[in-house]
Amino acid sequence: MGDAIKLHALLGGTFEPIHYGHLQPAEALAAKVGLQKVTLMPNNVPPHRPQPEATPAQRVEMVRLAIAGNPLFELDMREMQRSTPSYTLETLEELRAERGPRQPLAFIIGQDSLLTIHKWHRWQELLSFCHLLVCQRPGYRSEMETPELQRWRDEHLTRDALLLQQTPAGKVFLAETPLVDISATEIRTRRHQDKSSSDLLPPAVSDYIDREGLYRNPLPRDMLRR
């Protein structure tokens, strides 16, 4: 059995760029609940969202640089390789089929995502495929939007990390992880304003952004119209 019964977790995102707000809570979560592996899954952006400034290849390379030498993390490219919008539920279906029915799987989200989980594609099925590991986020309320959603959360809630290891899916775990108040938007804004963001992301990622000339000052509006 060996590796088949160890808890693995998934962390998806645009990662534009990847930063300490992604990495540090995941590392704290791993220590708290006994995660053996955290799989980072960069995703393509659905058509209704702004396209990233960095190319897909640049976003992937930033993830590679951020996790180099850290055995906790691995990279999964499946969502990046899709030409259609990626839905978390469909990715979880694929992973469950690959890893079998007994493998404990978890999906890492922030408190903000839990509060809007009912807007996700086929959200009612998520816990059939994984646990949800919820990281605290600064400034977000703890109560769900409606009594029905609160009951759903409470029915699946556990504070027993061992239970996450012993069951393949079905639980919501609220994690007291570090409150790392960093956003990729803040990093890009700092860069556009020619301010340093090196305190917010790994040095290798910061150096890569400099080398690639990413997130430079935007062109003046009259230049954009030409």
Rank of each mutant, 00 (worst) to 15 (best):
L114N: 09
P147K: 14
A57V: 04
V33F: 01
H8D: 07
I109Y: 01
F73S: 05
E93Y: 00
V60R: 14
T189I: 03
E148S: 08
A66F: 14
T177C: 06
L163T: 12
R188F: 00
Q36N: 04
A169C: 01
L75T: 15
L127S: 06
G170V: 09
F129Y: 15
G110T: 07
L224Q: 13
Y208E: 00
T167H: 07
A204E: 15
W120E: 11
P52K: 09
L224C: 02
D199W: 05
Y208K: 04
E212H: 13
H48Y: 14
E16I: 06
A184H: 09
H118N: 14
L35C: 06
A97E: 10
R151H: 07
M1I: 10
T167P: 01
L200T: 11
P104C: 13
L179G: 08
D3L: 10
L201T: 12
L149P: 02
G34P: 00
E98M: 08
L214G: 10
H156G: 02
E155L: 14
T88N: 01
K32A: 14
T55L: 03
D154M: 02
D154A: 04
P50D: 14
M80S: 09
E74M: 07
R188Y: 11
A175S: 13
F73N: 07
R102F: 14
S113V: 10
L75K: 15
N217Y: 05
E125S: 06
P220E: 02
T189P: 00
L126Q: 03
D207K: 15
L163M: 13
P42D: 05
V45K: 03
S142H: 14
S196K: 00
P168C: 12
M62Q: 12
R221K: 10
E143C: 02
T116A: 08
R78Q: 15
P25K: 12
R211F: 04
H19S: 05
A4G: 03
E176V: 05
A28F: 04
R82A: 12
A161L: 06
P47S: 11
E94A: 09
G34L: 10
S128A: 14
L219F: 10
C135D: 03
E27D: 01
A161I: 07
T146M: 07
M80L: 11
P147Q: 12
S142Y: 13
Q166T: 05
